[in-house]
Design a protein around this nucleic acid. Sequence first.
DNA 1: GTCTATAAAAGGATAGAC
DNA 2: GTCTATCCTTTTATAGAC
Lengths: 186, 186
Amino acid sequence: MELFWLKGYNSTSIADLLSRTQLNSGSLYHVFPSKQDVLVGVLEAYRDGIEAMLLEPAWAEIDDPIEKIFALLNAYRTMIVESDCTYGCPIGSLALELHEPDPQVRELLAHNFENWTAAIERCLNAAGKRLPRGTDKNALAQFVLTAMEGGVMQARTHRDVAYFDRAVDQLRTHFDLLAAAAKAKA
Amino acid sequence: MELFWLKGYNSTSIADLLSRTQLNSGSLYHVFPSKQDVLVGVLEAYRDGIEAMLLEPAWAEIDDPIEKIFALLNAYRTMIVESDCTYGCPIGSLALELHEPDPQVRELLAHNFENWTAAIERCLNAAGKRLPRGTDKNALAQFVLTAMEGGVMQARTHRDVAYFDRAVDQLRTHFDLLAAAAKAKA
DNA sequence: GTCTATAAAAGGATAGAC
DNA sequence: GTCTATCCTTTTATAGAC
């Protein structure tokens, strides 16, 4: 997970994996017949660990459903800052790096995104009447992911977290405008 | 440009470049001393060709400044559809694929993004009073890029252009809400 | 299951003739 | 400027002993 996050898939060699894990070639290949199988394992670990690794830490002391969304985005901000704007979302990076992934890999990437947006959608549903009646919660949840990934991409490219912050600010404005519209109608 | 767009940088070999260009190794290396120099040339070509290659075709018959923004997004939609949801924004893909790019490459990627958002910002300035007084046009222009890149990423990952469409719809809602807020204050 | 050694191929880059 | 041939390294993966 760490190496694919830091260096990407193609730029991580089997030798890198052996060095980092202190394994010998025979041991690694005994469990993972090919490099792609390691990738599958990593993507499955992200998929199965989203609650424990990502959501629970980010939401430890947050109750408000809308603030949970921005707390999650803030967790990504911390990752960006702590890596000097070099690393962002591991899934997003892999999704764009792998141009013609195997169906199994592509579906795991998609499944990771689905789990992420499903978590946001639960927050939106919990927000109840603070959003306009008829709001497409699924589309809005996807838009939160959109803003996160686009913001991470620009922050990494410019090596400046301010690009991520501006994306989050715009998303906040979007939620504020939606809340105002919901209130006006009520 | 084509090969880096279709396959990415690392997955495009010198042999691929020679085959596609019908050049021999000596000729290519005479002009581009290394593979990275080819990448630099490609990024410079995108930078210098944004008007002729991207903006002018997309805006051929569009006058309204806000609609120009959505016409540009629609040009990306066409790319997504025509490639069966495999290719999106070449700059965004390279930006996330290259984890530790040379400063020259990183700055070219950033410059490409800057030119793109500068074009959007000109549209926003032309929109005048349709946006609330005090709107941060630069941040909003970046948000358009954010939505585009995030939407492309999800459409590619899910192999479904509907993910891009939903991102654009949400952005449209954002602009509609801003326009309504501008009108209410006036 | 793990070890070392090594195969087999692909990759970026260079040499030197023309 | 372009040609062919090839070097050298890296990379994924395998073989076979223990």
